[in-house]
Structures are given as C-alpha cells and as structure tokens.
Simulated scan of single mutants.
Amino acid sequence: MKTIEVDEDLYRYIASNTRHIGESASDILRRLLQLEQMVAQVEAQTAPLAEPSTTPAEVQIGQRIEQMLQSDVLAEQESAIDRFMHILSVLYQDNPSAFAQANDIKGRKRIYFADDEAALLASGNTTKPKAIAGSPYWVITNTNTGRKRNIVAQLMAAMGYSHSVIERVCHSI
C-alpha cells in the first residue's frame, strides 16, 4: 500500500462518499472512479479475439454480486443482519447449485445453514433462524458481525469467488 497526500477538500469529499463503516479510501475511490469497470473495458478492447472459454451461464455468475456492491442497496439496510441476509439471498440467486455448499459450513457446536427452521433450532439455543429470501435455505442469525463475515467468506470461497470480491462483500456487512 502506498501513502499519498491530498488536499483537505479532497479528503472531505472522499470521506463524505463513505457508504459503510470501515470502507477504505481505496474502495471509495475505486467506486467513484468506476475503476474496475474501466479496467474491464480496457482489457476487453485490447484482448485478442479468441474462442470463448466459458459458457454464457458461467459469465453471468458473479454479476449479481458486482451489481449489489456497486449499488446502494447494502448501505440502505438498517442492520448487519439485514445486510447479511441480503448478501446470502444474492449469492443464492447468483449460483444456486454452488450455494448448496452452505450445508458444509458449520461451527464447533452449531450448524449455520439448513433446509428448514427446525434443524437450526435443534442445533443450539437462541439461534434465531431466518429464511434466506428466494431460496430454500435457512440460516442462523444470532452470531456477531465477525462470525457473519466469516460465514459469508467461507461460503463465497467454496462457491469459487475471488479473494478480492470476498473481501469487498465481507467489509460491506
């Protein structure tokens, strides 16, 4: 990481565009400058023409997550639980078959995901299960924010998301 000096007015502008607590100046600037989109466009323009190596369905995977990160929808959520639930819903919509790996994510004494509320209630006291919108899955919500981030990170890694995307999503909880 490099350090740069900026004028006070620029610093205030960057800080005023923070969407959530803990968002780094680099993340804010990337979003404001639409840097990732520009890099992708430049790469697409300079890439040699070749046979596509992915199917159209594979290209779509990850698109909903990117849209979610670029929109204000997470910042509009009132609590970490709401952001957690929204992220899980988008992950399911993005790739339902890979989301099935959620059943493998467990704590020492608790299961985190199940197909029904009863299984989660049986796994521990005060699990506060909630249905993941648009999916057949339930998740426990009575965990601290750090654990929620860990659950999302494990799930996204199992689903094949890149480390940088996982990091961005986890910081938005």
Rank of each mutant, 00 (worst) to 15 (best):
S97I: 14
L91P: 07
A98W: 07
Q77V: 10
N103Y: 11
N125D: 15
E51N: 11
D7W: 00
Q60W: 13
D115T: 14
L121R: 03
T141Y: 04
H163D: 14
A80S: 13
I4Y: 05
K109H: 12
S71K: 06
C170Y: 07
L10W: 01
F99L: 04
Q63I: 09
A114R: 05
K148A: 13
A131N: 13
E66R: 14
L49W: 03
N17L: 05
A75T: 03
S79V: 10
L88Y: 09
T3Y: 00
Y92M: 08
Y11N: 05
M156W: 01
M159R: 10
F99P: 02
R30C: 08
I111H: 00
V90C: 14
E167Q: 08
Y13Q: 09
S16L: 06
A25C: 12
A133S: 10
I140S: 07
I4M: 05
A75I: 04
T46S: 05
I140M: 06
A102D: 09
R110D: 15
V39C: 01
L49E: 14
I87L: 15
Y112S: 07
L120T: 12
A15S: 00
G134P: 03
A100L: 06
S172I: 04
N95D: 14
Y13P: 06
V59H: 14
S135F: 02
S89G: 15
G134F: 00
S24N: 07
S172N: 07
A50S: 12
W138C: 05
A40L: 02
Q63R: 15
D104K: 14
I132H: 12
P129Q: 01
V90E: 10
N150D: 14
Y11V: 00
V152Y: 02
G134K: 01
M156P: 01
M85P: 08
L91S: 12
H86A: 11
A114E: 03
T55M: 15
E78H: 08
T55H: 12
S123Y: 04
V139G: 01
T3S: 00
N142Y: 06
H163A: 12
A98Y: 07
Q70H: 03
A75E: 13
L88V: 14
N142C: 05
L35H: 14
A133R: 04
A122D: 12
